[in-house]
Design a protein around this nucleic acid. Structure first.
Lengths: 144, 144
DNA sequence: CAACGAAATCGTAGTATCCGAAACCGTGGG
DNA sequence: CCCACGGTTTCGGATACTACGATTTCGTTG
């Protein structure tokens, strides 16, 4: 039974981790000019739509605890990429927002991401991509 | 136009990272009795098939540099989960192999993984899972 | 045999990540 | 009105991941 095409890795979760690591390294390498870490890139990419978010929201988006984000946001703040402002309706919460320079960096991050996605998914049928998102959402929901 | 089901995240790569973080936390929590970190779990899961591997091979499987694995393997070694032996045909290389106790732990890891996968993918059509693997492989290949 | 390349380890440094505790604020009950 | 409770963020401390450069050992090629 020729198993050449199905090596030894039928586990979706292991393949998930491998793909994450591999893409992460490529992204960090292509964005080396920004001199940012993976976490900073991740945070910035999630803010790239320009909509301000609280620390908790951002933490849920990137998959980290709010405590973890504090140091990441500290660095982005020091570099002038984000600002922390008061929340309109809730004075406990802090609103994280992109500065103009942060917007430039975030756009660069997003274009790198979409470029990599385009390169990888060019020859694949749309059903595969749809299934990909379906499985990712199922995994995320089960792990929420 | 109800946007509840399509939040603001059409980026496959961002969804990938979120799912990875979310599943990683659940796995680490369910395997808390083993008292191992995510990297150790990842390495052990990749060794669970019982086939010995070199450090470089394992590094390619988990997505880390060989230098990164050294400390992880040190810990697994100290706990008696793996042994480092000489490679038959290449005396530079080191062969990493599971011990009986490592095999027990690896089996536990694998059963936790398959259980989580089963829970998440139960209601999904096989085509979705197939597309998931297809996209994952494409992303990994582009980033190799 | 001499030179070059590959494999793994070690030392060093920078982050990431989480936990517990504290400070601040919003909400509901007396 | 005041108070207790829960949510939000930050800080301090501890552990571990990760990478880079240098080193050692070994295979390979000329």
């Amino acid at each position: 039974m020729g198993k050449e095409s199905a090596p030894a890795d039928p586990s979706p979760l292991l393949a998930l981790q491998r793909a994450t690591h591999a893409t992460l390294q490529v992204i960090a390498a292509e964005l080396a000019s920004l001199d940012m870490t993976a976490s900073e890139i991740n945070a910035l990419a999630n803010l790239a739509d320009g909509r301000p978010r609280t620390v908790s929201e951002l933490g849920a988006a990137v998959g980290s605890r709010p405590t973890t984000l504090t140091s990441v946001l500290d660095r982005l703040d020091r570099r002038g990429h984000i600002t922390r402002g008061p929340h309109a309706g809730d004075r406990r919460a802090v609103v994280v927002e992109l500065t103009p320079s942060g917007r430039t960096a975030a756009d660069q991050v997003r274009s790198t991401l979409t470029e990599l996605e385009r390169r990888a998914l060019a020859g694949l049928p749309p059903e595969a991509v749809a299934g990909f998102h379906q499985v990712l959402q199922a995994l995320t929901e089960v792990s929420s």
